[in-house]
Design a protein around this nucleic acid. Structure first.
Lengths: 212, 212
DNA sequence: ATCCGCCTCCCCCGCGCGGGGGAGGCAAAT
DNA sequence: ATTTGCCTCCCCCGCGCGGGGGAGGCGGAT
C-alpha cells in the first residue's frame, strides 16, 4: 500500500473539479488521480483507477451521485465515498449513509476541514458535516413534548396495546379486569385522538412514547 | 461574552482530570475553570461557575455522568456537555444525545482532535466520535434484507394497512373490491407471520418497509 | 369537607377484522 | 402446453374491538 491518498473527483462543473483538485494537490499526501464530469464516466474511472476515495457531487447529469454511490458500493466496496453537495442538507443523506457512504460534506466547507474529512474517511472513519450530524441526532431523539397527558397507568396500558395481546390477555398480565383495560384504552384513544389500537401504537412510536 | 472557552472537568480519577487540564491549558483560547470528582459536586460547580462547556466522564461514583447530564440540561440548558468514556461505545450514548448531550468522545481520542471537538461543541455544533457516528448510522439504516417476499401489490396494501382506513375504504381508494383487499391482507399477515394489522404495521416499520 | 383526578369494574351494541374455505383471468416462465 | 405466481373477487363464521353509557373507592388539593 502507498502512503499517499489517491483521490478521484466527480463533478459536472469543470471549475469545481479544477478548484478542488488544486486545493487537494496542495496537500503532499494527497494525489488526485482523475476527474469525471458525471456518474457514468466516474464509475468507469473508479473501476479503472481504483482510488482510495472518490469525492463526488450529489447532483450530476446522466448518472447522479446517489446512483453512482450505490453502484460503486456494489462493485468496489473498498473505495471510500465522500459525498459533496450544496449548502443545504439534503434528506437523501440518510439514504446515502444507509447505503454505506462514509463521508458527507457541504460545499461551503473550509478547505482545511475538507482535508481533514478526506483523511478521516480514507482512514476508515465516518465523517458527516456538523449540520448533517445535528440533523441525524435530531432524528434519533424522540420528538419530545407534544403530549404527556397520559397518566402512568395509561402509559403502561399503551405499551401493552402495541403488542399482539388482546385486552383480556393484557388484563390477566396486569392482574386487573378486562373491563378496566378496555376503560383505560378508551381514555387513551380519546386523549390521543386515534381511532384504534394500531394507530395509537404508531402514534406512540412517532412521539417516542414507546420504543420500537 | 468572552473570547475564551471556559471548561469544567468532571472525572473521578485525579490523574485524568490533571491530564486533561494540562492538555487543554496548552490551548490559549481554552480556560479550565474547575474540576470535580463526581457528578454531584460537578453539578454544583457547574451552577456556580457557569462554564461554556463541561467535560464529563460517564462513569463516576455517587452521581454518574448520565444523571449529571440530565440534571444539568434541566437547570442550565445553555451549558454544553461533552461526554467522555472508555474505549467502548456505550449504548447509553443514544439516550444521552436524545437528552441533549452535544458531544461524545472516547478516551482514546488524540488531544488535537479533542481540542477540535470541544471547539466545535462550544460553537454550537454537534460532535460525535466516529465510532459512535458509525453506530448511529447503523441504527438509522433499515435492517434491510429479512424478507421482501411481498409482491408490489402487497407492499401497497401493507402501506394502507398502516393507516386508519378500513378495508372498505382502502378498497374504494384503490378502486378494487373490499374482498380483494382482505385477500391481500390475509396473505400479507400470513407471510409476515403477524396476527393482525397493528402488528404488521409495527413490523413493517421495524424492517423499514414503510416510513414512519 | 368538598372536589377532582385516577384507577377500578360493569353492561350493551354493532362492526371491523382474522381465518377458513374457493375460483377465475392473465402473463411469464418452463 | 402446462405450470406457477399474481391479482382479482366471493362466502361464512366468531370474536376482538370501539363507543356509548354508568358506578364506586381512594388520595391529594383547596
Amino acid at each position: 500500500m502507498s502512503d499517499s491518498i489517491r483521490i478521484l473527483i466527480m463533478d459536472d462543473h469543470a471549475v469545481v473539479r479544477k478548484g478542488l483538485a488544486m486545493v487537494l494537490r496542495l496537500e503532499p499526501s494527497f494525489e488526485v488521480v482523475g476527474e469525471a464530469e458525471n456518474g457514468r464516466v466516474g464509475l468507469e474511472a473508479a473501476k479503472r483507477l481504483n482510488p482510495d476515495i472518490v469525492l463526488v457531487d450529489l447532483v450530476m447529469p446522466e448518472v447522479d451521485g446517489q446512483e453512482m454511490a450505490l453502484a460503486l458500493r456494489k462493485s468496489n466496496p473498498n473505495i471510500k465515498i465522500m459525498m459533496l453537495t450544496g449548502t443545504e442538507v439534503d434528506d437523501r443523506v440518510f439514504d446515502l449513509v444507509a447505503a454505506g457512504v462514509e463521508g458527507y460534506v457541504l460545499k461551503n466547507i473550509e478547505p482545511g476541514e475538507l482535508v481533514r474529512a478526506i483523511r478521516a474517511v480514507a482512514h476508515g472513519e465516518a465523517y458527516l458535516h456538523p449540520d448533517v450530524m445535528r440533523k441525524a441526532v435530531e432524528r434519533m431523539k424522540p420528538q419530545h413534548a407534544p403530549a404527556v397527558l397520559l397518566t402512568p397507568r395509561e402509559m403502561e396500558i399503551l405499551e401493552w396495546m402495541a403488542t399482539p395481546n388482546t385486552y383480556k390477555q393484557i388484563a390477566s398480565q396486569l392482574s386487573i379486569s378486562e373491563e378496566t383495560v378496555r376503560s383505560h384504552a378508551k381514555n387513551i384513544l380519546e386523549k390521543m385522538k386515534q381511532p384504534n389500537r394500531a394507530q395509537a401504537a404508531l402514534m406512540a412510536i412517532k412521539m417516542g412514547l414507546i420504543k420500537l
